[in-house]
């Protein structure tokens, strides 16, 4: 998803009053945007202003993981990355993994396992799970809990989320049975 008409202004700051900034090229979910941004604009703010509102603003301190994105495949807090620093990187948000019609197996597993309550932490959880499963297709429960330890959920006891990641791992392994790397470390 992108290019939404509604552009919620996260910062509440009048763009004209800010320093002029420079043109930054951001590649989000495979699509490239050219936007003029001041140096102090975070990637979180830039993404939401571009319409990627699946990236949630939680704590703005790097504590909660609601603003998680993949930056060249690595899961990071977008509130702690400046937009200028993300130039040239492949930025992936939850919406870049799949859509409602064609969900990613991880997203499907979150729905099937009942891992979504209010949904605010879900995009970040899904991305933390994606980063984990890309490196470790068959994680133990402890490894799953470790991988989502920077993503806070205030609704659940994490049980269903852990189950969703386990289920997603199993389904992804079944989908790609010939692919090597299914071995535990």
């Amino acid at each position: 998803m992108s290019g939404a008409n509604v552009k919620p202004t996260l910062t509440g700051e009048s763009r004209s009053s800010a320093r002029p900034g420079r043109i930054v090229r951001l590649t989000v979910n495979g699509r490239t945007h050219e936007v003029t941004l001041p140096a102090h604009r975070t990637l979180l703010e830039a993404l939401r202003d571009l319409g990627y509102v699946d990236v949630k603003n939680g704590c703005e301190k790097g504590d909660c993981g609601a603003c998680a994105v993949l930056l060249d495949g690595k899961v990071v807090n977008s509130c702690l990355v400046l937009a200028w620093q993300a130039e040239g990187a492949a930025i992936t948000t939850n919406a870049g993994l799949g859509t409602v019609d064609r969900p990613h197996p991880i997203q499907e597993a979150f729905a099937d396992a009942g891992a979504v309550q209010c949904g605010y932490c879900t995009p970040g959880m899904v991305l933390a799970a994606k980063a984990l499963l890309d490196e470790n297709p068959n994680p133990s429960e402890a490894e799953i809990r470790e991988a989502i330890s920077g993503n806070l959920c205030r609704c659940t006891g994490y049980g269903q989320i852990v189950e969703a990641v386990r289920l997603a791992a199993q389904r992804l392994r079944e989908k790609a049975p010939t692919k090597q790397g299914g071995e535990k470390r």
Binding site: G62, D63, V75, N151
Partner: peptide, 9 residues
């Protein structure tokens, strides 16, 4: 150290 997300930065 902190969390996996922070450790990546």
């Amino acid at each position: 150290f902190a969390s996996p997300l922070v450790r990546n930065r």
